[in-house]
Design a protein around this nucleic acid. Structure first.
Length: 788
DNA sequence: CGGATCGAC
DNA sequence: CTATGTCGATCCG
C-alpha cells in the first residue's frame, strides 16, 4: 500500500512534466487523429462487421420504442404522471441521508503496480494486457487514446512506443490485499468490487472517531495519491463522486437533499453506474442526456420501459441509492471460457470442451458446489455469440457429469451447421442452478444413491418406456418450443438407441456427420437421470405420480411421505388428467381476492385516482362492450405479468374502459384498408348512418372515424379527470412547464395564466417542491395554477 | 427454463 | 496475425 502510494506520488508530477515535455515524444494525439487511426485498424474486420450488426439491432430497438411513443395518448401520459409522482413522494419520504459512504477507486491499478515494480516504466506509456486485449493503461498512454478494453495491436498503432506488460494477477491480488487490510480499519464490513475498487460505510467509524484523542486522528488515505475518493450519502453518489476529478481527485456530496440534486443536475446519465452505451443511446433518442432530463421525462419513461428500468431511472434522477453495504450473497454461477484462433474440427472442439469442463469441475469442487444447469457458450469467427443451456435432474459437479451435458449441446450445434464445419473462436462452459443449503440436505440421502446401487428401478416408472411417442407429446406440451429442443431430444433418442460404447471414442470424431452420436464412456445412470424422458416418477411411499423435474423436490416429497406429513397435501393434488386440465383452465382467471389486492395497490400507487375512477360512469351498462381497451395500450403488448401490471390495468380499466370504443366493436365499425406503395394502413369507420355519441359529454359527434372519435373522448376524459384531480389537495405538484404546454394544448379553452410558464425549470428543481414544499402552498408550479 | 443482452470490473 | 474473462440482472418468449 505504502509503495503504491509512493510511486503514485510521482505519477502526478510526471504527468505534468509529460504535458510540457516534448523531448519525451509523448505529446499525445488529438481525438480526431485517435479516431482516425482506430477506424483504419478496425474497418473491414469481422469484428467491425459484427459491431455494425449489433448497432443496427440497437437502432431497431430504438425504432420500436419510438413507435410505441407515437401511440401514447395524452391521458395515458397524464395517468402515468400521477402514478409516478405518487411514487416520487414515497421515495422522497424514504430518502436516507444519514449514512456516509466512501467509494475508493485506485486509478490505473495494474499499471501502477507494474510501474512500482519496474520504475523504468514510470516515464513511458505503458499498458497492461496482451496484443489482443488491454486491461488498463497509464496516463502517458491514455494521452494517445490507449484505453482499457482496447486490443493491444490497435494501441500499438496509436502509440508505437507503447510498452505492453503482461497481466500478473497474483501480484495485483497481493497488493489489493494489502490495501484492503487498511480499509478494514475504517469499515470492517467494506465491500470490495474487484481488485481496485471498494465501498466503505464509514458512518460508524466517524462516530467513534469523534471520541478519539487528537494524536490518534489521521487523515484518510493521506499517502494515497492515485486513489479516487467519493464521499456521499449512498453508494451510487459515492461512485459518481470518485469518477469526478480524475486523476487523483476527491469529491464529496453533502448529506443534504439540495446538494444531491445540484450534483445531479447537469450530470450526463452515462456517468451513472448501470447506464451503459446502449441505454445511453436509447435515452438520447428520447432527448434525455442529463439526470435532470431523466427526471423530467419520468412519466414517458414509465410507459416505454419495464418496471425495473424506469424505477431505476427514477431512483437515479432523485439521487437515491443503497445506504448500506449488503454482503454479496451466494454465488449463482461459475464459468470458464477461452478465446483461441479458429477451431473448426469436431474433434478439437470436443476435446476443448472436455478441457473446459475439467477446469470448471476443479473450481466447482473447490467451493463444494453442484449445479443443475449447464450452459455452453460459443462465439463463431464472425463474433456472433450463442449460448445453449440444459437443465438436468441431478446436479452436476465432476468433469464427466458436466461434459456429458455439454457435449450434447455442442453436438447439436455442430449438427445445426452441418455439412459446414462449426468455426469458432471462443468456447465457454457455465454451471448454474446451485442447490440451496436446504436442498443439499435432501440431495445426500437421495434417489441417486439408490439408483447407483443397482439397476432396480421398480418404483421409478419410466413412462417413456411404455410409449415413446406419448412421452414426446408430453414433453413438447410442457415446453412448446422450437426446433432446437426437438432436435436435442431427437439426438438423445438416437443416443439411447445406440447404447454407450466405450470403444467408440476417437473414431467418431472423424465422422462429422454423425457427431450427434458422439458418445463417450458416459455413465448410464447419469443419462437416465438427465434424460427428459423420465419426467414422471412414482413415489415409492404413497405411489402417487410426481411430476417434478427436480430431484431434490422429489426426495423431499419422499421424505415427507415417509414422515407422514404429506398426506393432506397429496389429497389436493389433481390425480388424473381431467382434473389437471380443469385446474389449468382455472389458473389464468383472476380471483376476486386478487382484484382486491390489485385495487389496494392501485390505491397506494395512485391514491388520488380513486375518486376519479369510481365517481362516474364506471358502472355504465355499456362496460361489457369495451373489453378490449386494455390491449389498446400501446406500450404493453404482453399480458399482465405481475402485480403492478395488473394494478395498472385495473386502474386503466376503471377509468377508461367504459368511455372508449375499441376497434373490436365490429357491430359498430367496419374496417377499411388503404394500401399505398410502401405501407398499408387501416381505418375504422362507423357503419352506415350510425351517429357516435360521446359517453362522457353525451354530445353527438360529427365524425364517423374511430380515431377521431376516440380522440374526442380522450379530450373529454382529460377534462373530467383533471377536475377530479384538482379537487384533491395532496395532488403532487410537479408539473413543469413542458407538461403544462402539452396538456394545455390539448384541452380547449383552458389556458395557462401562470406567469412563470415561459421559464424553463429543471425537473429536479420541481421535484424539490414535491417533497417538503408541497404542503406549503407557496409552490407556484402547480397544476392548480394551470387549470383553475 | 433458455436465450439474448446489458453492464460492471 | 491480433477485439478478454466472469459474474449478476433483466427481458422476452
Amino acid at each position: 500500500m505504502k509503495k503504491v502510494g509512493n510511486s503514485s506520488c510521482n505519477d502526478g508530477a510526471l504527468l505534468r512534466m509529460g504535458l510540457n515535455d516534448n523531448k519525451a515524444g509523448m505529446q499525445g494525439l488529438d481525438k480526431e487523429k485517435i479516431n482516425k487511426i482506430i477506424m483504419e485498424a478496425t474497418k473491414g474486420s469481422r469484428f467491425y462487421e459484427n459491431e455494425l450488426k449489433k448497432d443496427q439491432q440497437v437502432n431497431q430497438r430504438i425504432e420500436k420504442m419510438m413507435q410505441l411513443k407515437e401511440k401514447i395518448t395524452t391521458q395515458q401520459l397524464l395517468k402515468a404522471q400521477l402514478q409516478v409522482d405518487k411514487l416520487v413522494i414515497e421515495l422522497e419520504q424514504s430518502r436516507n441521508l444519514s449514512s456516509t459512504i466512501v467509494h475508493i477507486d485506485m486509478d490505473a491499478f495494474y499499471a501502477a503496480v507494474e510501474m512500482r515494480d519496474n520504475p523504468e516504466l514510470k516515464e513511458k506509456p505503458i499498458a497492461v494486457g496482451s496484443m489482443s486485449m488491454l486491461s488498463t493503461s497509464n496516463y502517458h498512454a491514455r494521452r494517445f487514446g490507449v484505453r482499457a478494453a482496447m486490443p493491444g495491436f490497435i494501441a500499438k498503432k496509436l502509440c508505437p512506443h507503447l510498452t505492453i506488460v503482461p497481466l500478473n494477477f497474483e501480484k495485483y491480488s497481493k497488493v489489493s490485499k494489502e490495501v484492503r487490510e487498511i480499509l478494514t480499519e475504517y469499515d470492517p464490513n467494506f465491500m470490495p468490487m474487484g481488485l481496485d475498487e471498494a465501498y466503505l460505510n464509514i458512518t460508524e467509524h466517524l462516530e467513534k472517531r469523534l471520541n478519539w484523542p487528537e494524536d490518534k486522528r489521521r487523515f484518510f488515505f493521506n499517502t494515497e495519491r492515485t486513489t479516487e475518493k467519493g464521499i456521499a450519502p449512498n453508494t451510487m453518489l459515492a461512485k459518481m463522486c470518485s469518477d469526478r476529478n480524475k486523476p487523483n481527485g476527491q469529491c464529496r456530496v453533502a448529506p443534504e437533499r439540495q446538494a444531491v440534486l445540484d450534483f445531479l443536475k447537469d450530470l450526463p446519465i452515462r456517468k451513472v453506474p448501470g447506464i451503459g452505451k446502449v441505454t445511453e443511446k436509447m435515452l438520447k433518442a428520447l432527448g434525455i442526456v442529463t439526470c435532470s432530463e431523466l427526471y423530467q421525462q419520468r412519466a414517458l419513461l414509465s410507459l416505454l420501459f419495464s418496471e425495473a428500468s424506469w424505477r431505476n431511472f427514477l431512483d437515479i434522477s432523485l439521487g437515491l441509492g443503497s445506504t448500506h453495504l449488503e454482503k454479496d450473497g451466494e454465488r449463482k454461477s461459475m464459468s470458464t471460457e477461452r478465446t483461441f484462433s479458429e477451431i473448426n474440427t469436431a474433434e478439437d472442439q470436443y476435446s476443448l470442451c472436455r478441457e473446459l469442463c475439467r477446469d470448471l469441475a476443479q473450481e466447482l469442487q473447490k467451493e463444494g458446489l453442484k449445479g443443475k444447469t449447464v450452459t455452453l457458450k460459443l462465439k463463431n469467427v464472425n463474433f456472433e455469440v450463442k449460448t445453449r443451456a440444459s437443465t438436468v435432474l441431478s446436479s452436476v459437479s465432476t468433469e464427466e457429469e458436466i461434459f456429458a451435458v455439454a457435449k450434447d449441446l455442442l453436438g447439436t450445434e455442430i449438427d445445426s451447421v452441418a455439412p459446414h464445419p462449426l468455426r469458432i473462436r471462443l468456447m465457454g462452459v457455465r454451471v448454474s442452478g446451485f442447490l440451496s443449503e436446504e436442498e443439499k440436505k435432501y440431495q445426500q440421502k437421495s434417489i441417486t444413491s439408490f439408483l447407483k446401487s443397482g439397476k432396480e428401478i421398480s418404483f421409478l416408472r419410466l413412462h417413456a418406456g411404455k410409449s415413446n411417442p406419448e412421452c414426446f407429446t408430453k414433453n413438447s406440451e410442457a415446453s412448446p418450443r422450437g426446433s432446437f429442443f426437438d432436435k436435442k431430444r431427437a439426438a438423445r433418442q438416437l443416443n439411447s438407441e445406440n447404447p454407450p460404447n466405450e470403444t467408440v471414442g476417437k473414431q467418431l470424431f472423424h465422422d462429422k456427420k454423425s457427431s450427434a452420436h458422439f458418445v463417450e464412456e458416459t455413465k448410464k445412470v447419469t443419462d437416465l437421470q438427465n434424460s427428459n424422458m423420465c419426467k414422471i416418477f412414482t413415489c415409492p411411499v404413497c405411489f402417487e405420480e410426481q411430476s417434478s423435474n427436480n430431484l431434490e423436490e422429489l426426495n423431499r416429497h419422499i421424505d415427507e411421505c415417509l414422515s407422514g406429513s404429506l398426506v393432506k397435501d397429496t389429497m389436493e393434488i389433481p390425480k388424473n388428467d381431467n382434473s389437471r386440465e380443469s385446474t389449468l383452465n382455472f389458473l389464468p382467471q383472476i380471483k376476486s381476492e386478487n382484484v382486491d389486492e390489485c385495487q389496494n395497490k392501485v390505491d397506494q400507487l395512485a391514491g388520488t385516482d380513486q375518486s376519479a375512477c369510481t365517481s362516474d360512469s364506471c358502472t355504465s351498462s355499456s362496460t361489457e362492450k369495451f373489453t378490449q381497451i386494455i390491449s389498446d395500450k400501446p406500450h404493453r403488448e404482453r399480458q399482465p405479468s405481475n402485480l403492478s401490471d395488473i394494478a395498472r390495468n385495473v386502474c386503466m380499466k376503471q377509468c377508461l374502459l367504459p368511455k372508449r370504443i375499441s376497434e373490436d366493436n365490429e357491430d359498430l365499425f367496419e374496417k377499411t384498408v388503404h394500401t399505398e406503395e410502401t405501407s398499408s394502413s387501416c381505418f375504422f369507420e362507423a357503419k352506415g348512418d350510425s351517429v357516435l355519441v360521446c359517453p362522457v359529454c353525451n354530445s353527438e359527434q360529427k365524425t364517423n372515424s374511430l380515431v377521431s372519435f376516440n380522440k374526442h373522448v380522450d379530450v373529454c376524459l382529460n377534462k373530467g379527470l383533471i377536475q377530479e384531480l384538482t379537487e384533491k389537495k395532496d395532488f403532487p405538484k410537479t408539473y413543469n412547464t413542458e407538461n403544462s404546454n402539452r396538456v394545455g394544448g390539448l384541452i380547449r379553452g383552458q389556458q395557462c395564466t401562470n406567469p412563470s410558464q415561459g421559464t424553463k425549470r429543471s425537473g429536479l428543481t420541481t421535484s424539490q417542491s414535491v417533497s417538503k414544499k408541497a404542503k406549503s402552498s407557496n409552490s407556484k408550479n402547480t397544476i392548480d395554477m394551470f387549470f383553475k
